[in-house]
């Protein structure tokens, strides 16, 4: 099968949420010696890009995004061991998590999926995460970005504590901080000194790309 047909199969698999087709395409790609990175970028990620556009235009909703991301992950799982690491092309890293006192992680998970599909290396530290755990992970991974999520007004105040600890630890200048969640607004982002706020997952990807570009 030609490279173009295999890449199209990857894209179709993701857009249609067809996990079996993604696995089939991945096996065909390996058998055909297709470059794994190219398969991910020009096949699977292209599909997630289309899914993102459909989500933004409200042609797709969460059920379609979830099955698309599962097809994406199924393809990546098979291709990943075959990726050739290239010098100087490391993806931007983002640590994401829901702040301490908050166990609601649906929004954070969706943002993580969309960021991963957009090419970011996503380090998800989970939910109910302490300020220290966030800061430790940023230092450990040399992350470019930190994404903080909160659903509740009771927990969103802990975002400010994370920023304060980043300052105390002297790493605030090394990482851009973006925040989001049902209770969050631009006003709150401004108040606590975050670098950005996004209203939904699509906007979060755009914001992350913008913040990384500014920092570069």
């Amino acid at each position: 099968m030609s490279k173009e047909l295999i890449l199209k199969k990857f894209t179709d698999a993701v857009v249609n949420g067809d996990e079996d087709l993604a696995v089939e395409a991945a096996n065909e790609a390996i058998a055909s010696n297709l470059d794994a990175t190219e398969a991910i970028v020009d096949g699977l990620s292209k599909g997630m890009g289309i899914v993102g556009e459909y989500f933004e235009s409200q042609e797709y909703f969460l059920p379609e995004v979830i099955v698309a991301s599962e097809a994406f992950k199924a393809g990546v799982k098979i291709l990943q061991p075959h990726i050739k690491v290239q010098q100087g092309t490391k993806p931007s890293k983002i640590v994401i998590g829901t702040v301490q006192g908050d166990t609601h992680d649906i929004g954070k998970n969706i943002v993580g999926i969309m960021l991963g599909a957009a090419g970011f290396e996503v380090i998800d530290v989970g939910r109910d995460v302490s300020p220290k755990a966030f800061v430790d992970k940023v230092k450990e991974t040399n992350a470019d970005l930190l994404g903080l999520s909160a659903l509740m007004t009771t927990s969103m105040v802990n975002m400010k504590k994370v920023l304060a600890l980043l300052n105390e630890e002297g790493v605030r200048g090394q990482v851009k901080v973006m925040i989001g969640g049902a209770a969050i607004s631009q006003r709150y982002a401004d108040e606590i000194g975050a670098d950005g706020y996004s209203v939904d997952a699509v906007a979060a990807v755009r914001l992350a790309q913008k913040l990384v570009a500014v920092a570069a």
């Binding site: 949420g17 969460l62 059920p63 379609e64 995004v65 979830i66 099955v67 599962e70 649906i106 998970n109």
Partner: peptide, 11 residues
Amino acid sequence: GTSELMRWLAQ
């Protein structure tokens, strides 16, 4: 779990 509910709704 909401993700699983969404997956069920699709499949």
